[in-house]
């Protein structure tokens, strides 16, 4: 039982969603955009968040798109993780999202929700970082297209009145060799201790991480180290630890020391896979 009440709006057009948001916030109502809603329902049930109004984006056609078009894969923000897992237009993305939660949950979780929600693992973002994807946003400033790197930091850098409409992936990235590996504490279904995804573009490895730090990331400096084949996998993995963008997570899922151990093992596994494939 959710112990609060809120208004519910379900616009059929992007412009309507923006207008509704502006009217509600002008009325001082704490308003949030709503995709799959699993996080909102869980957190409002616990009184951790108390929105006064929600705007459900699932009836907006642009948010429901999932297609290959003009050399791009176009994924609407309200497309479910199951749909993405079962339709491998971008096989790495399908693999990564298949490891998020479990199937029935994935039937409800949307890719937009995974990217823009408060749960910081955001594993669906890893293939998008690797493929230099673009994101279509809508809000008070209208509709704009940005590089995914512009809106990904320690959190998602979206304006309060903005929502993700679509993700655009250059189709060429869906054809490169890829690798992904996720380690959880015990059961198969859990948050990652370490989740990494990688593609090899023009003989250069790209890597993105989740679960290591309290935000997902991809760093050129780490990729430089990982691409230095003059050094052993173990030596490269050791050097990566020194370049991480924050302290390694230390929580109930894994201690900092264990996470570091798993990260090194995962990096070695990745290098063995990629370099064996090449040789």
């Amino acid at each position: 039982m959710i112990p609060i009440d809120f208004e519910y709006h379900r616009p059929k057009a992007i412009t309507d969603a923006i207008k509704i948001y502006q009217a509600l916030t002008a009325d001082n109502k704490d308003t949030v955009y709503y995709g799959g809603g699993t996080e909102l329902i869980s957190r409002s049930r616990l009184n951790e968040i108390t929105p006064q109004a929600i705007i459900d984006l699932k009836n907006i056609p642009e948010c429901n798109t999932f297609k290959r078009e003009a050399g791009q894969i176009v994924i609407g923000s309200t497309v479910s993780l199951t749909a993405i897992a079962d339709t491998p237009l971008f096989p790495l993305l399908s693999n990564v999202v298949r490891s998020i939660a479990f199937r029935t949950a994935r039937n409800k979780i949307t890719i937009g929700g995974n990217l823009a929600g408060d749960t910081f693992y955001r594993e669906a973002i890893l293939p998008l970082l690797l493929s230099d994807s673009k994101v279509v946003l809508a809000g008070g400033k209208g509709i704009r297209q940005v590089e995914i790197h512009e809106i990904v930091g320690k959190g998602m850098k979206l304006a309060k009145d903005e929502f993700i409409v679509q993700i655009l992936i250059n189709e060429k990235y869906t054809k490169y060799p890829y690798f992904n590996h996720k380690t959880t504490k015990q059961s198969k279904v859990n948050y990652p201790i370490v989740s990494l995804a990688s593609i090899k573009v023009d003989d250069r490895i790209r890597i993105a991480f989740s679960g290591v730090c309290p935000f997902p990331f991809r760093l050129r400096e780490i990729e430089d180290i990982m691409n230095n084949s003059a050094e052993s996998p173990g030596e490269r993995a050791r050097k990566v630890i020194d370049l991480l963008p924050s302290a390694i997570l230390n929580d109930m899922h894994a201690s900092r020391e264990y996470r570091e151990f798993v990260l090194k093992q995962s990096l070695c596994k990745l290098l063995e896979h990629v370099e064996r494939r090449v040789s």
């Binding site: 809603g37 329902i41 869980s42 199937r103 029935t104 409800k108």
Partner: peptide, 13 residues
């Protein structure tokens, strides 16, 4: 026809 947890969907949805 798609399995959904009834605790994770609003009735209005």
């Amino acid at each position: 026809g798609i399995p959904i947890n009834a605790c994770h969907i609003l009735s209005v949805e």
